Amino acid sequence: MSLPSTSSAPSRPELIEHLVSTRIAGDVATPRDNNLAHYRKLANGDRHYWLGLELGDRWTDEQDVLAVMAERCGVADDPDHRLGQDTIDPGLTVDALDRAAVRLRKAADDRQRVLFATGHPGGLLDVHSGVAAALRAAGCEIVRIPLGLTADQGVVVQLADVAMHERGATLWHTHSPEPMKEILDALQREGEPLPDLVFADHGWAGCAGQRGIDTIGFADSNDPALFLAEAEGTLAVTVPLDDHVLNPRYYEPMTAYLLATAGLTS
């Protein structure tokens, strides 16, 4: 599959076509039964699916979770659809990117401190590092994490301005909030100000939002917690997408669109 040229950002229709063709959105790989199982586990109070957020007893009905996911992610809203294909609405993905661009523009205009983190280094690392480079060029301070942090039987590292979890010399896929908790706690211990903005995904984003930090998060259709958090105002933006498609280069047009919309391209 050929990628759109990265010399210029795609238009909204071009990006939507690309998201669907690469299955970043549209008919995504995550099956319907997996989505519903995760919604049910979140509603039943399984904190693994809360992604660092404190949801209390506000989301104990699986159907309420499904309704939010249909509205904000674009999954099928039919509760009787239990198996087979599910979807992410590419229009909702682009709408969320537009909202994220507004917040990135504010960060650039105010020269804010921004922290980047991902639990999906195999898919989203280049998205995060590309946005970090653009904000650094615009005068933002990219938060450097303290050294020596450990979490979940691994270490918290920072490469290309992005915090990640490492175990056994391997960058680790994790939805855990613990690495972000360690970063924020360490910043406070060392007398460093907390970030003005966090750009992250999954538990990294959930933890930051729960701490009251403005947060832009990415989440898949089977990870409802960040969408619930945006609905409640705990997260600034949640971008729906398949967070680990076949080739990480498929995200390049999305990043180009985001940066162009934020006015962060040279």
Results as ranks from 00 to 15, higher is better:
Ala205Thr: 11
Asn222Thr: 07
Gln63Asn: 13
Ala76Pro: 06
Val157Met: 10
Gly122Val: 02
Gly139Ile: 12
Met1Trp: 00
Asn247Gln: 11
Leu97Gly: 09
Ala236His: 07
Pro195Met: 05
His48Ile: 07
Thr215Cys: 10
Val65Tyr: 00
Lys181Ser: 11
Thr87Tyr: 13
Leu97Ser: 07
Leu241Phe: 02
Ile88Tyr: 01
Trp50Thr: 13
Asp220Met: 04
Met254Lys: 04
Gly56Pro: 15
Leu124Val: 13
Pro224Gln: 05
Val162Met: 05
Gln112Cys: 10
Gly191Arg: 08
Leu184Lys: 12
Ala163Trp: 02
Arg113Thr: 08
Ile183Leu: 03
Ala132Thr: 00
Arg167Gly: 14
Pro177Ile: 02
His173Gln: 14
Leu124Pro: 12
Asp80Pro: 03
Gln63Gly: 09
Ala70Asn: 04
Val114Tyr: 06
His18Leu: 09
Val20Tyr: 02
Leu66Met: 15
Thr22Cys: 12
Leu83Tyr: 11
Val239Thr: 09
Asp185Phe: 07
Ala108Ser: 13
Asp64Arg: 15
Leu194Glu: 03
Gly91Ala: 11
Pro195Trp: 01
Ala231Leu: 06
Leu53Cys: 15
Glu71Lys: 14
Ser2Asp: 02
Val127Glu: 02
Thr234Ala: 10
Leu83Ser: 06
Val114Thr: 06
Met180Arg: 11
Asp109Met: 05
Ala256Val: 03
Glu230Leu: 04
Thr60Val: 14
Glu14Met: 13
Ser11Ile: 08
Val75Tyr: 03
Ser2Ile: 02
Leu42Val: 05
Val114His: 04
Glu190Ile: 03
Asn44Phe: 08
Ala138Pro: 07
Leu15Cys: 14
Gly91Val: 08
Gly203Phe: 02
Gly26Cys: 14
Thr238Phe: 04
Gly217Arg: 03
Ala229Gln: 09
Val20Leu: 06
Pro224His: 06
His244Asp: 11
Asp80Lys: 13
Asp214Ile: 00
Met1Ser: 09
Gly209Ala: 08
Arg47Trp: 02
Gly154His: 08
Thr238Lys: 03
Ala229Asn: 07
Leu83Phe: 12
Thr118His: 07
Leu259Phe: 03
Gly26Ile: 12
Pro121Glu: 04
Ala70Trp: 00
Ala138Arg: 09
Ser21Lys: 13
Leu125Ala: 11
Thr255Asn: 13
Ser7Leu: 13
